[in-house]
Amino acid sequence: MTHGSTVQVFHLPFSFMLPQRVAAERGYFEAEGLDVELLERDRQRVDWKYVPASETLTGDVDVDLYPVCKWESLKRTWSLEDGRIVAHGAFADLPYTFHARPDAGIEGPADLAHVPIAVNRRTGQEYTAMRALEEHLDPEAIELEHHGMPTDRLRALRDGEVEAATLLDPHSTLADHLGFERLFEFENHVGIVAAADLDGETFEAFVRAYERAVEEINASPEAFREGYLEMLEADAEVAPDLFSDVDLEAMRESVTVPTYEVPEPADPDDLEEHLEWMKDRNLIDEGATIERVVAPVR
């Protein structure tokens, strides 16, 4: 791919990806000479998972770049040969939370042993949750159940299908307003995966535009509050039953726009540690190698 070509970017409509949308809407990609097209799935048609688990994004969907949880980036690039990891990072001061039903008698992470916890599998979220829980529980005591998108997890929690769920703001704030108990937090880590033909000049231009958006948001977070809240309000159309008993205006006022970060070039040493952790738990093939999945763009 040559600099100036259309760059197809898969867009996750979640809070940690706000800078990507801002960079597109404010012309920051265009200023770098990039014609970026954000590919989004219709939220109304997403059944359980936003990131497809079986088809490849770089092949079947013809995507040039896509963000996904750091652990899932290892899984996808190895098992599906879906591109190569080029960057990763926390992306935002925006941790995941564990929320529990107030009647479950759960006061802290140690009480989550053998308790069904709603996660969204094959997004990588379950791996971050597992690592966080292993600091408090034996691995065999951790019970994670797939319940899909944030609204699906909240509904499972509300209906008593699970006793706890993992959530990310602004859905964590929604859970607070629904009366669920916030137990503890754990870090969210994201990776960026590129198609094999994405050249270094194009990726560097993409990161410069992304960084410009990060700086804009961090300088004036309140100016981006409406855009940030659009993600939550879109879910009010998908799952109106979750919002019917909530003071939406009070919830809007309690949401804080996070501080964002710029993706860092892929660090094979850092990702090797994550890969070995996955191998130890039979989450990825024993033969998986960093050389096959990580290809820093230069």
Score class of each variant (00 low, 15 high):
Pro95Ile: 10
Lys279Cys: 01
Arg153Cys: 00
Val115Ser: 00
Gly160Cys: 09
Leu229Gly: 10
Asp138Cys: 09
His3Arg: 01
Val214His: 04
Asn282Lys: 15
Thr56Trp: 06
His177Gly: 07
Leu144Ser: 01
Asp103Pro: 10
Gly59Lys: 15
Val61Tyr: 15
His147Thr: 07
Ala239Phe: 14
Phe180Gln: 06
Ser79Phe: 15
Phe184Pro: 06
Asp285Trp: 13
Glu215Ser: 12
Phe98His: 08
Ala132Tyr: 05
Val7Glu: 02
Thr202Cys: 00
Asp270Trp: 15
Arg281Gly: 01
Asp269Thr: 14
Met278Glu: 08
Arg26Val: 03
Glu140Ser: 12
Asp197Val: 06
Phe206Tyr: 10
Ala141Val: 08
Ile85Arg: 11
Gly124Tyr: 05
His3Pro: 01
Glu32Tyr: 07
Gln44Ala: 13
Arg76Cys: 02
Asn218Phe: 00
Arg153Ala: 05
Phe180Glu: 06
Val293Glu: 00
Gly59Cys: 04
Trp48Ser: 13
Phe10Thr: 04
Glu211Lys: 10
Leu248Thr: 12
Val294Asn: 09
Gly89Asn: 03
Tyr50Lys: 03
Phe203Met: 05
Ala266Lys: 08
Gly108Thr: 06
Leu283Pro: 10
Asp111Leu: 02
Leu178Val: 03
Ala205Arg: 04
Val46Gln: 04
Leu271Ala: 03
Phe98Trp: 12
Arg208Asn: 05
Ala141Asp: 15
Tyr66Pro: 01
Asp93Phe: 09
Glu187Pro: 14
Arg84Ala: 13
Gly227Asp: 11
Gly160Val: 11
Leu12Ala: 06
Ala90Ser: 15
Gly33Trp: 03
Thr123Ala: 07
Ser172Asp: 11
Leu271Pro: 03
Pro268Gly: 06
Ala295Asp: 14
Ser73Cys: 10
Arg252Asp: 09
Glu134Cys: 00
Ser79Val: 13
Glu249Gly: 11
Val190Thr: 14
Val119Asp: 01
Gly59His: 13
Val36Gly: 00
Gly89Ile: 03
Asp199Glu: 05
Trp277Gly: 03
Val190Ser: 12
Gly33Tyr: 00
Leu183Cys: 05
Glu204Phe: 05
Tyr50Arg: 02
Arg252His: 15
Thr173Leu: 02
Gly287His: 12
Glu145Ser: 12
Leu144Lys: 04
Asp267Phe: 08
Pro109Trp: 00
Glu276Met: 14
His136Phe: 13
Ile142His: 02
Gly191Tyr: 03
Leu137Gly: 04
Ala23Gln: 01
Leu248His: 13
Ala92Val: 11
Glu187Cys: 05
Asp247Val: 14
Phe91Pro: 03
Ala223Cys: 09
Glu25Leu: 04
Glu81Pro: 08
Pro19Thr: 04
Asn282Tyr: 13
Val297Gly: 09
Ala118Gln: 02
Gly108Met: 00
Asp199Gly: 01
Arg131Asn: 10
Asp199Cys: 00
Met149Leu: 14
His11Cys: 07
Glu140Ile: 09
Asp267Val: 08
Ile142Cys: 02
Gly191Met: 01
Glu230Ala: 12
Ile85Val: 07
Glu181Trp: 14
Asp42Met: 04
Leu183Tyr: 08
Ser220Val: 13
Tyr96Trp: 13
Thr97Asp: 10
Glu32Ser: 08
Gly200Cys: 01
Phe91Cys: 04
Leu137Cys: 01
Glu291Tyr: 13
Val7Ser: 01
Tyr50Leu: 05
Ala295Gln: 14
Pro139Leu: 01
Glu216Tyr: 11
Pro265Glu: 09
Glu163Asn: 08
Asn188Cys: 08
Glu72Leu: 07
Ala129Ser: 02
